[in-house]
Design a protein around this nucleic acid. Structure first.
Lengths: 110, 110
DNA sequence: TCGATATATCAATTAATCATGAAATATGGA
DNA sequence: TCCATATTTCATGATTAATTGATATATCGA
């Protein structure tokens, strides 16, 4: 993960529809959600949704897979891991006092 | 943390100078870094840096504190924790299989 | 092969963001 | 009080992003 990729990822997550899509894909896990389902769940027109999904794809945050006539989207957990590690790199100059509780709390949220 | 705050945080992190600033503040921990130091470290003009620091402040990602003539900035770890929990909420519908390794890898990065 | 469904692409308009010059505010020291 | 330093605020022009209508592509079933 370099800064260009990280910037693209954060930019992708800084728009309401895309953030909601990504959170739903995180929740959905392996199952994923089709483009059409996402559009109707979030009440977004199909071309707008398609454009937003393309942004998430280009940012590397999601993958997709054709399934008959529909296309299913999935969160890319590996990319998310990379992004978060990039952000927290050398946190507190290496002392874990500050980041350890941050991380532990996150586990509980899961 | 609601979606508005999360969007503001991701938007704040989606610009090169601000992302670099935030990562430096994460590294700096308790010590923080002054506005002027950040400007010269990253070779950014003072008013541009000031505007970018204001964006990070408004997004709740950093705090500041006047110290004589200079103003010192600090990463807000609690806000970061809130943001990450928001993003990972109900990850994989509650099963931790997917998020557990993601989190564990993060700890190592610290 | 034809029509229906699902999704993507294109071009254009509108809206938001960014960096900058100029000026203002706050602090500390002579 | 006056000057220098550190930082913020304001107005503006330039770049970039978002949504949309129209159209294209891909898949499925009759």
């Amino acid at each position: 993960m370099d800064i260009k990729e990280a910037l693209a990822a954060f930019a992708a997550l800084s728009q309401q529809t895309r953030l909601e899509v990504f959170r739903r894909l995180i929740k959905a896990g392996e199952e994923g959600i089709s483009a059409g389902e996402l559009g109707s769940q979030l009440d977004v027109r199909q071309n707008t949704m398609s454009a937003n999904l393309t942004v998430l794809l280009n940012a590397g945050l999601v993958r997709n897979e054709r399934n008959g006539r529909s296309i299913r989207y999935f969160a890319d957990f590996e990319a998310l891991r990379g992004l978060l590690s990039f952000l927290m790199e050398d946190c507190c100059g290496g002392s874990t006092e500050r980041c350890q509780p941050l991380i532990e709390e996150l586990v509980c949220a899961c």
